[in-house]
Design a protein around this nucleic acid. Structure first.
Length: 826
RNA sequence: GCGGUCGUGGCGGAACGGCAGACGCGCUAGCCUCAGGAGCUAGUGGGAGCAAUCUCGUGGUGGUUCAAAUCCACUCGACCGCACCA
């Protein structure tokens, strides 16, 4: 065995070997429990970054550990390969997006292999492959046929840099999630998926997700934004129209002093036509529309509005109230119109104060302390109804219900549930995506491409230039087609799909990646799904993770699968940070995985990343920490080298009773370690503590080595065998090499997980802490299993205890066997 | 404003309510060495003391408990998400 640890030699050697064996290919096997571990597949940007390394290292440990535990593990990898950067590269450098993408995939796959990641490469997929996007198109048709895909004209988010529309989820603080440039509103006709139809189930089923971080569930909950209230209408007699309003505070209807419309509200025109206010209202609306989305919806922005000149009738009181238009009312939420109750809504309060609109108190606080003349802000607490006709005296919460009944009886309104969630805008005016399989025919209208005609191939010969027209629109051969219904001349849809559609079902495709007749076989999907452990960044909390849940529910309803949630357990890994900031080119603080692997090897890179912080927390990069991980492997190598011959020559079976004290102690530490590592890799995924206990075991081996030359080779073999198996999921290469140098047969990765021997960790004596009034004053060594009474007696025999107790009264004695004695004195 | 997460040595981080600081980094000393930015061994929270030992210490203030980093209340700070959502 080589005396020195040379990672490059060891790693190259085993990577070659593993590739030859295709060791991580999996098939359905009903003899063993299945386990599906998945890392979010990457966009093939060209190179792996440390975030990827962290993501895949975590997944790899889980996969390898579960396999050693006897699970039938599926651990696949693939490519989220459609998307903007490929197209930008085409515009900038004249490379075709397809060539650019496939080259990048090759490079990143090579890097993953250099990390020693245990993937089933037979299942590799790429969403830009025609055999994949054919089924993405099939999915689109499924949604269309279920009435879940539709086209509508709406004010949509437009990224000026990407030259395409974006879904609401993809706009972050008014900026594009990918390129960070400002997003503007544009009135366009676009394709949508009806995710709002699933809003309730997406919300309710969050409760099922016991294995998801609270944070992610809350974010989804916020995003869906369910609220319950009522909808009813104010009649506007002069134009014979009704203004519907949505409110969660139907208990305050008697306090309405005005109605406000969003500037975009369709009734505004009719209402102001011919009035003296018309000019002023139009000027106001034009000004508000010019404001960016961010400033328009900011809480900082001052509430502004204008009177329309019109009046509406409050159906509860018969009163006429003025109708205003104001910037703080959003057309997209509720009905685009709200009732103004200044006394009980802070926004209305501010608005009414500014424009001298009347305020009426309709809920009195429990202490009777509210008077409309003295309060200085809206009261939104609980209380008793006042100034509310028949509802006076009622508790306001109960009143909410009573008002609903009253409305429903008279048929003037109803209960309503509202969501913040909007439908998912799925069309994109870009080339590098899956073409939307729709055809426009002058005679037949919108016609879906028949499933048997799929795929709608993405043409290769396209000219790329920056601009707002989808490149596909300029490809005559693509656009012109025949109508599948009437056979007449027709045009293809030239938009492609949001790449989040591609990534919404890829985890199903892994279960049956080469199927040519359907997206996947249901039996296979049902065998593997749901994903037992999903791992990825938290940035997808309400993007990919919400879309994927939506897709899963639709596929379930379509009878394709029998599960309602795709990801049983979710681990959101933290970012990799350097000098306090996320690694990024612009900050110049990037450490490339390539560099680290070349210098220290993949095992070191993996070990450092897993050891430096718990997986869900941010990880501060430390070059010295990397050195430390490397040093540990050197230490491991030398100690195993020292005992290699001894271990290799030993029999696997030996008499545990023949061990001397030091050997017993070493064996005890081994089994303590097995226990700790097993526990740490169980539910908790605290890889850092798992590694620290393995380090302690190695330290114990060095301590043992100090003690002499005569050793029982059996225990040495047991220790090395178990040590290498414990470490194998973290550092696959070095453990494989050392395994072959010592234990020998087969691959360490084909071995079973070490078994914990409870007998081995038993000790004869244990240390007991003696406390006086909760403070540690002494420690004694006592035989294990000493009862409380004996322990107490022993404690009082101690000189130190006697000193403390002398002249005092013993109030109480607490004995925790095996742990401590606490004597309370006064 | 609403919701979530989190505050522990010089640093990354450990601690089923039971010895705070495991493990690693850094630092110090000794050994080994021609040498070492290699390796091995030992030490390493602050303060006091020659020492045994004492004392303070997990953002802050209270509380529960024999016992609190851990549980509860309030508070301060950091980060994240949503935010004029009616």
């Amino acid at each position: 065995m080589n005396e020195k640890y040379i990672p490059s030699e060891v790693e190259a050697k085993w990577q070659k070997e593993w590739a030859k064996e295709n060791s991580f290919a999996t098939e359905i096997n009903r003899q063993r429990p299945e386990y599906y571990v998945l890392e979010m597949f990457p966009y093939p940007s060209g190179k792996l970054h440390m975030g990827h390394v962290r993501n895949y290292s975590i997944g790899d440990v889980v996969a390898r550990h579960k396999k050693m535990q006897g699970y039938n593990v599926m651990h696949p990898m693939g490519w989220d390969a459609f998307g903007m950067p490929a197209e930008n590269a085409a515009i900038k450098h004249g490379v075709h997006p397809a060539d650019w993408t496939w080259d990048n995939i090759d490079n990143m796959r090579r890097q993953q292999q250099e990390l020693g990641l245990a993937y089933d490469w037979d299942r590799e997929i790429a969403t830009c492959h025609v055999e994949y996007y054919k089924w993405t198109q099939w999915m689109f048709l499924l949604f269309y046929n279920k009435g879940l895909a539709y086209k509508k004209k709406a004010a949509v988010n437009w990224c000026t840099e990407c030259n395409t529309v974006l879904a609401n989820e993809q706009v972050v603080d008014g900026h594009c999630w990918r390129c960070d440039s400002v997003v503007v509103k544009k009135e366009l006709e676009q394709w949508f998926f009806k995710i709002t139809q699933y809003a309730d189930r997406l919300l309710e089923d969050l409760q099922e997700l016991k294995g998801w971080p609270e944070r992610v569930k809350t974010m989804q909950e916020n995003w869906i934004g369910r609220s319950t209230g009522a909808e009813f209408s104010f009649v506007v007699p002069e134009i014979q129209e009704k203004i519907a309003v949505y409110t969660t505070r139907q208990d305050t209807v008697f306090g309405v002093s005005y109605v406000v419309l969003a500037p975009e509200h369709p009734l505004v025109d009719k209402l102001i036509a011919g009035k003296e206010q018309e000019e002023a209202v139009r000027r106001f609306i034009d000004r508000v529309k010019d404001l960016s989305e961010i400033s328009r919806t900011s809480t900082e922005t001052e509430k502004e509005g204008v009177f329309t000149g019109g009046y509406a009738v409050n159906p509860f009181t018969g009163e006429q109230v003025p109708i205003w238009v104001a910037n703080y009312v959003l057309m997209e939420y509720g009905t685009g119109a709200v009732m103004g109750v200044p006394a009980h809504d802070q926004r209305d309060w501010e608005f009414a104060t500014k424009y001298h609109l009347p305020k009426r108190l309709v809920i009195q606080a429990p202490d009777n302390g509210l008077s409309i003349d003295t309060i200085t802000c809206a009261y939104d607490g609980p209380g008793v109804m006042v100034n509310s006709s028949d509802f006076n005296g009622m508790d306001n919460e109960a009143c909410k219900e009573a008002i609903c009944l009253w409305m429903e009886e008279r048929n003037i309104g109803k209960r309503r549930v509202n969501y913040r969630l909007r439908d998912w805008l799925v069309s994109r005016q870009r080339y590098w995506g899956a073409p939307i399989p729709m055809i426009y025919c002058d005679t037949c209208g919108v016609v879906p491409v028949p499933k048997e005609d799929l795929p709608v191939m993405l043409p290769k010969n396209v000219s790329f230039s920056a601009g707002s027209v989808s490149p596909l629109a300029k490809v005559e051969e693509f656009v012109n087609c025949t109508c599948p219904k009437c056979g007449g001349a027709a045009r293809r849809e030239t938009d492609t799909m949001d790449t989040f559609i591609c990534s919404s079902w890829y985890y199903f495709r892994y279960t049956d990646p080469r199927n040519t007749s359907q997206p996947f076989d249901s039996a296979k999907a049902n065998y593997w799904m749901p994903v037992d452990q999903y791992i990825g960044g938290v940035e997808h909390a309400i993007l990919h993770l919400l879309y994927a849940r939506f897709f899963t529910k639709v596929l379930k309803d379509a009878g394709l699968i029998n599960i309602g949630e795709p990801f049983k357990n979710l681990l959101t890994q933290g970012m990799v940070i350097k000098d306090g900031a996320k690694m990024s080119k612009s900050k110049g603080n990037v450490v490339s995985p390539e560099e680290i692997i070349a210098k220290y090897g993949a095992d070191t890179a993996r070990l450092f990343i897993l050891f430096a912080a718990p997986p869900e927390r941010d990880l501060e990069w430390s070059d010295q920490g990397v050195e430390g991980a490397y040093r540990f492997f050197g230490r491991l190598w030398r100690i195993v080298d020292h005992y290699a011959a001894c271990a290799a020559s030993a029999e696997a079976e030996y008499d545990v009773n023949s061990l001397d004290k030091q050997e017993r102690e070493l064996r005890r530490v081994l089994h303590v370690t097995i226990g700790k590592v097993s526990e740490a890799l169980g539910e908790r995924f605290s890889f850092n503590t798992a590694i620290s206990s393995i380090m302690e075991l190695v330290n114990a081996m060095y301590a043992f080595k100090e003690h002499g030359t005569q050793v029982n080779s059996g225990v040495i073999r047991e220790v090395i065998s178990a040590l290498l198996r414990l470490l194998a999921p973290f550092a696959p290469h070095i453990t494989e090499e050392l395994w072959h140098e010592t234990i020998g047969q087969g691959s360490v990765h084909e071995q079973s997980w070490p078994e914990f021997d409870a007998e081995a960790v038993k000790v004869d004596e244990t240390e007991i802490v003696l406390q006086i009034n909760g403070k540690v004053r002494d420690k004694i060594i006592v035989p294990v299993g000493l009862g409380a009474a004996e322990l107490e007696a022993k404690a009082f025999e101690q000189e130190k205890v006697k000193e403390f107790v002398a002249g005092k009264t013993v109030v109480k004695v607490i004995c925790v066997p095996q742990k401590l004695v606490n004597i309370v004195i006064k």
